[in-house]
Write a protein that binds this DNA or RNA. Structure first.
Length: 567
RNA sequence: UAGGGCGUAGCCAAGCGGUAAGGCAGCGGGCUUUGGACCCGUGAUCGGAGGUUCGAAUCCUCCCGCCCUAGCCA
């Protein structure tokens, strides 16, 4: 029997459960700051935390880390909840906010002051930075000197208590004072050099309004929030590893529940960027339309583009969890959507770049219906009727006047199959005076009705097509990688990563010819346009004027062959 | 520089002292009324150097490379 491979986090939890740590309880959480939309990197964390809770029969909380009123909003919080719901991560009734704990955190802060473990400091941000042991350049060496004590470090408990209360009461200007933990200014871990716990900020908070003018820092809040909620395993990304000793110190001083923090490497993907700051710039400068522009790696955008939560979950599964920083190839993500959509997306015939074909020996005015299979992977999906007539559209790239070797499609004198219909042969090419091909005149073989020749002769290609008279016109938005290079942030000195934005990441095709069944579609519906890719109906669609977003292309060995020979 | 981490095939990633799983990509082939899907085949001695051991990717030592922190952001 194959042993299931368990990632290092699950191995740690297995052990904790076995040892009876936390009474065998497992309780995780996802702690977003409501200051931006979630991207696929967040999905890794969400699914990891949610699944672990499920697997161990534990609980999963959603907690908004809203300790910075200047950046956060209810709008973002709502969008984040929608993303979690879409992914299927159910926090049940456990929707929490760090801001709900402000009073408790304040009480705990006074407790630290009383213990002589925190003090009010009058140093400016610059002064604090200086005295914390700012890195110094010494020739080509960098030295990190020990920090020096703040002159306010030895204030009495009484004075600190009074000053801190005055801070809360709003007696000081923004930035005039801070509450700092009294730890060790010479500590090798910079986070332990008397970190700031509270800053004065006369700013309205989207949930607590003007109730507070001092706000806890993330470092002071996070561990205690976990403690309040009884979190057992506080899973976070690598950059917080350095902060763990500080969290440990706070919790120990307070003598409260202590979650076990486990850090993992966040997800990185090729051909895109994955930080809120960078994504924000793309939106602000108009390189993409909004957060839900299907070129974006945000969940709201991927949803619009046609990705399924199942594909994303499968992707996370395959990527795994570890501590080594890595960059996953976008191709793996694409593989996962294709795999999922292949099984469930109904097939349709759609011509993206139409070339008119006239079947010269097909009676004018005649038409007939062919049965088309909705999904060869799913017999239960049944069949549908597709109309055929004398004038059709085929894909422009499915014809070449002077085809290279290995090109199997239509060419002068060559015979191919029209899917579900007939064999046709190209008899004549009609062009404009300047050489542009406007029409193909072909003949069909009536005995090949349905697509098989009674004499057993074979064709090397099967083309998709749409009857001109019955075609529905629609828009297709063809998406490519947002960036043309694997690592957009890798730029020459003086260059801007934004220049790596791929101008062809979106190509809009205004006049696709679609089979009639595509006239009535609902936003969010997904299809496979045979031989072209997976497409999802965009909310911009109007009755009779559908708009489709290309989720992913199909694997295309011909394209690959061509690309290889071109280079 | 200090402190904290990471280093297994092109990209992820198992492995936890007994002689390198799996996936993606690539390549080759089969099948095919989607050049889709599906099926088959194909690659590494584990950052480097020493050492311990009958035996090391796994233990020890040293070295190299990369990342994180040095916000009153999270």
């Amino acid at each position: 029997m194959m042993e299931e491979t368990r990632d290092f986090i699950r191995q740690i939890i297995d052990e904790d459960v076995k040892q009876g740590r936390y009474g065998g309880r497992v309780h995780t959480r996802f702690p977003p700051e409501p200051n931006a939309y979630l991207h696929i990197g967040h999905a890794k964390s969400i699914l990891l935390n949610y699944r672990i809770a499920q697997e161990y029969g534990g609980k999963f909380n959603l907690r908004f880390d809203d300790t910075n009123p200047q950046k956060e909003s209810a709008e973002y919080a709502e969008a984040i909840k929608e993303d979690l719901r879409w992914l299927g991560a159910d926090w049940e009734d456990r929707e929490f906010y760090a801001s709900d704990y402000f009073e408790q955190l304040y009480v705990w802060a006074e407790k630290l002051i009383e213990k002589g473990k925190a003090y009010v400091c009058d140093l400016s941000p610059e002064e604090i930075s200086e005295t914390r042991g700012k890195a110094i350049r010494d020739g080509d060496r960098v030295i990190t000197p020990p920090g020096t004590d703040s002159p306010y470090r030895e204030r009495s408990v009484e004075e600190n208590l009074e000053l801190f209360r005055n801070m809360r009461a709003g007696e000081y200007a923004d930035g005039a004072k801070t509450l700092r933990a009294k730890i060790d200014m010479a500590h090798p871990n910079l986070n332990m050099r008397d970190p700031v716990m509270y800053r004065i900020l006369h700013a309205a908070h989207y949930r607590t309004g003007d109730a507070w003018c001092i706000y806890p820092t993330y470092d002071w809040a996070h561990g205690q929030c976990d403690a309040i909620e009884g979190i057992t395993h506080s899973i976070c990304s690598l950059e917080f590893e350095n902060h763990r000793p500080l969290y440990d110190w706070f919790l120990e001083q307070l003598g409260v529940h202590h979650a076990r923090q486990i850090e993992f490497a966040r997800l990185n993907l090729t051909h895109t960027v994955m930080s809120k700051r960078l994504l924000l710039r793309l939106v602000r400068e108009g390189h993409t339309d909004r957060w839900d522009d299907p070129r974006m790696p945000t969940l709201i955008a991927m949803r619009r583009r046609g990705y399924t939560p199942e594909a994303i979950a499968d992707f996370m599964n395959r990527v795994g969890v570890s501590k080594s920083e890595s960059v996953v190839e976008h191709a793996l993500l694409e593989h996962c959507v294709r795999q999922d959509l292949n099984l469930r997306a109904p097939r349709r015939l759609a011509v993206l770049d139409p070339l008119r074909v006239v079947i010269t020996n097909y009676p004018e005015g005649q038409e007939e219906m062919f049965d088309a299979i909705n999904n060869p992977e799913d017999p239960a999906a049944g069949t549908r009727k597709v109309p055929f007539s004398r004038e059709l559209y085929i894909e422009r790239e499915d014809f070449m006047e002077d085809p290279p070797k290995k090109y199997f499609r239509l060419a002068p004198g060559r015979e191919v199959r029209l899917r579900y219909a007939y064999f046709i042969r190209c008899e004549e090419v009609v062009k404009t005076p300047d050489g542009r091909i406007t029409e193909l005149r072909c003949s069909y073989d009536p005995t090949t009705r349905g697509g098989d020749a009674p004499d057993g002769r074979k064709v090397k290609a099967t083309l998709h097509w749409v009857s001109a008279r019955h075609a529905v016109c629609g828009v297709a938005r063809l998406y490519e990688h947002l960036f043309g290079v694997e690592n957009p942030l890798k730029v020459e000195e003086g260059q801007d990563w934004i220049d790596n934005v791929n101008p062809e990441a979106l190509v809009t095709v205004p006049d696709c010819m679609l089979e009639p069944s595509l006239a009535e579609v609902e936003p969010g519906q997904r299809f496979q346009f045979e031989r072209k890719g997976y497409f999802c109906v965009d909310p911009d669609s109007r009755p009779g004027a559908p708009v489709f977003n290309r989720t992913a292309t199909l694997r295309d060995t011909w394209q690959k062959l061509r690309a290889r020979n071109a280079t």
